[in-house]
Structure formats: structure tokens, C-alpha cells
Design a binder for these strands. Structure first.
Lengths: 236, 236
DNA sequence: GAATATATTCAACGACCGTTGAATCCGTCA
DNA sequence: TGACGGATTCAACGGTCGTTGAATATATTC
């Protein structure tokens, strides 16, 4: 059984789809090209022909949806920004612009998108692939978001914003990994696939977190004279 | 070059140490038994002899430090609880008891512990290993923490606490993955290996998040009559 | 010190890995 | 029709994988 039905979509895309699903489930090394091409109903050699090799296929899968996604997120961020002018947008609105396009597509964009975000979660947590691939494809976007976050947090040191972003990404990443652990843990009370629940809760959660970080920093600064603070910063 | 110096530690432990480091870096499938045994200065066949196989070695690595760790975390939680009696402990104190033993050992417990937490991060995000292994070794602990969190959040629906815990775990997990991405992103302003920075910030962040979730839930409840709320809950 | 149990080494197995080059199919254009 | 070029198939390569069984070394017991 090679194909369920005669499938006239180009083989290149079928390979990408199958690879997306399998890489997301078992990581780069947990999947063989034969697994992928068999799932795609295609000969093994076509991977080398179309992509060059296994690693190139992996990055091709990762890149395919990154561009369109980030463009949409940036546009949404600017829209949020314009709507709030001349004030800075709320932290909730910024956080929402950051993950709303992701949640929307993961929930209603079809199984390919769902797999894709699980793959991004895998890459983001991987010490091997994370630094290279995330930096290359997502850093410009992230830096723009952090800049706007800083506008919304006047007087807050940059370090705090970066840490807040780190925690935000972590929470989001685990959500996309779709391990189903929260479902088991809560006895069915929460379903991690229910991304509308995430949508409602994540923005308030991280916005409050950002405010707490900002408050903590200013409290610490007022407790410490400037010179001592400079020295402490150098020490840490 | 098999060993740097003559090493009289039992081979079984040397294998565990090497496997811990390599599994953490490249995952289960990204490491071969020959990689591990070569790093341990030991013959390949010893893995089958001592552990039975590759999968059994993987779970042995995972289990080795889990017990002692969770016992300490539970004791700390009960201590925090007793100290606050007859009131419930603060959210900050509970969150702190959850991750303080982890951060402490990751920062000052030696390279083995650091690798171990990166491995837990890998497992926690893995759709393949996460549900099985995390559930088996960490669920009793987590349920106890959630129970105490609920005491500290009177009137807060259980769902909200579970979601808050999910976000907390995600933030913690990404921190332990040690991808070094935050370092690059912040231009050296933050070092993700600086776990003291995490220690200071994570508790206020997630405590504020929990309070926001709780407030959001009670606000939503007061907006909705009881019967409609019941229906809405059944729908979702 | 012989016997026994445990630990380690060695060589090899069959299976699967990613990749390759030649052969074949098929639609396009001359 | 025939030549051509991209897409696909097929068979096979060398290498590495996890695992195994027999042989050897080391420690323990009588």
C-alpha cells in the first residue's frame, strides 16, 4: 500500500508533509528517510533529488511556513501599535499579537500546521538545532516584539523584558508540544489541544508576569544606591 | 584514548554519566551506544549486560536522580506549608519550593545535574517520551503541589490552576534546556546559565500569573449566570 | 588453590541507515 | 516522430546501528 488514493499533488510537497508530521513526533534522528518516503508514497531517492539530503529536508520543512507566519505576526503587531497610538499598546495586546496567529493556525489551520508547531517546539528546546534555526528565522521578529514590549514597560530594565520573553516562549512552546500530559494530570479537566483555552489565559498570565518583573526591578533599584547597583550588576 | 586517567569508578556509573550528558544534548535517537561507551571508556557490550538495552539505559538515567530530587521537593513544600500555618503559604513560596531544589542543583550540583535537567527538559517536551516518563515519575509530586496551590488560591477553579501550572512548567523547562538562545538574543545582557537570575524572577512572574488567572475566572463567573456558565462549560 | 560468580572483552550477526548512479518514465517542443 | 529534460524508479554501495554469544579476566568463596 503506497497511497490511499491516487494522489496527484507534487511529490515534493507530499514529502514535506510527511516529514513535517514525523519529525514533529520523533525528532530529527528518530525518523528515517524511508519512514518519510513510505508515508508519502514515494521513492527514497526523491529526497536526495529534490532537497539534497536529510538535513536539507529538515530545514526545508522548518522554513516552509516560517515566512508567511512571521509576516502576519509582524503586521498584527504594527496594527496593535497603531490602534493604541499615541499611547503604547497594552501588554496583553502585544502578547496576543505574538501568539494569536500561531494558536489560530494550530487550532483551525489543519493537521499540517499542528505538526509544524510541534516541530517548532522540538527545535526551540533542542540544544543542537535551537540556537541555529530559531535565531536564523525568528530573531528579527522577536527583537521587534521586545522593542514594543519595552515601550509598554517604561522604566523597566531590558534584562527583565528578555527574561519575561523567555518565560513566555517556554510556556508557549510546551503548549505546542502537545504531549497531552496536562490532560492526564487534570483528569480530563483541561485539554491541551483546546487552544481557545490557551488563548484566553496566556495573555493575562504573561502580562501579569511582565508587570511583576518590572515592579520587582524598580523595587530592587530603589533599595540599592546607584554605585552599589553598578557594582552588583558587574558582579552578576 | 580510552580513559583520561585510570578511573576506578564502577563501569555502570560511568555509562550512566556519559549517557546522561549525551542523551541531554542530542536526544534518544541522536546518540548511539557506541558514542556513549566510547565516552565512558568502556566496551559496547556492557550496556546490554548492565541495563538490558538502549531503552532501559535511557530510563535508568532518567530515574537515577528523580527519587532523591522529588523527596527533597516534597519536604520543602511541607516545610513551607507548616511555616505559614494556619494560613496558606504564599504563591511565591509554593512556586519557589517547586523549582528551588532544581535550580540549586543545576547551578551548583556539578555537570551531571546540569545535564540531567536538560534531559528532563527534552523528555518533558517529547510527544513520545513525555507522557509516559513524566507521568510515571513526577505526577504524585505535581498533584501535591497543585493541591497546595489551590489552598493558596481560594475560590479559584481547578482548571485555572492546572493551566497556570502548565505555563510554569513550560517556562522552567525551556530554562533547563540551556539552548543559549536568550544569551544571543539579548546580546549578552542575560545569561541563561545564570540560574540565580531565574531564581529571583520566576517566582514573582508565575505568582502574578496565577493571580491573574484567578481574577480572570472570577470576573468571567460574575458576568455569567450559573446555568449559562454550566452549559458553556459543558460545551467547551 | 581450585571452584565459582561476576565483570569485561572481542568478534560478529543481521538490520537498517543515507546516499548514489544508472535506467526508465513522461510530458514538451522542434 | 524524435530528441530532449525533468521526475521517478530501482538496485546497490559502504557504514553504522543494537544486540548477542563465546572467550577471557577479575574477584569471591570454600
Amino acid at each position: 500500500m503506497k497511497k490511499k488514493t491516487t494522489d496527484h499533488r507534487p511529490a515534493k510537497e507530499r514529502i514535506l508533509d510527511a516529514a513535517e508530521q514525523l519529525f514533529a513526533r520523533r525528532g530529527f534522528y528518530g525518523v528515517s528517510l524511508r519512514d518519510i518516503t513510505q508515508a508519502a508514497g514515494v521513492d527514497v531517492a526523491l529526497v536526495s533529488y529534490h532537497f539534497g539530503g536529510k538535513r536539507e529536508l529538515f530545514t526545508a520543512v522548518f522554513e516552509r511556513r516560517a515566512e508567511v507566519l512571521n509576516r502576519e505576526r509582524l503586521e498584527l503587531l504594527e496594527e496593535v501599535r497603531r490602534a493604541a497610538l499615541p499611547a503604547a499598546p497594552s501588554l496583553e495586546a502585544i502578547a496576543n499579537a505574538f501568539f494569536e496567529p500561531l494558536l489560530e493556525r494550530s487550532a483551525r489551520g489543519g493537521p499540517g500546521w499542528k505538526s509544524y508547531f510541534a516541530l517548532v517546539a522540538y527545535v526551540n528546546n533542542s540544544p543542537e538545532f535551537g540556537p541555529v534555526m530559531m535565531t536564523r528565522h525568528f530573531d528579527p521578529l522577536v527583537e521587534r516584539f521586545i522593542a514594543v514590549l519595552r515601550e509598554a514597560l517604561p522604566g523597566c530594565p531590558a534584562r527583565e523584558v528578555y527574561w519575561g520573553y523567555q518565560f513566555l516562549t517556554g510556556a508557549l512552546t510546551l503548549t505546542f508540544a502537545e504531549t497531552g500530559r496536562l490532560d492526564k494530570l487534570s483528569g480530563g479537566l483541561c485539554r491541551s489541544s483546546d487552544l481557545d483555552s490557551v488563548r484566553e489565559r496566556l495573555a493575562p498570565y504573561v502580562a501579569a508576569g511582565f508587570r511583576a518583573l518590572s515592579a520587582r526591578a524598580t523595587a530592587a533599584a530603589s533599595r540599592t544606591p546607584v554605585r552599589a547597583a553598578r557594582k552588583a550588576r558587574r558582579r552578576s
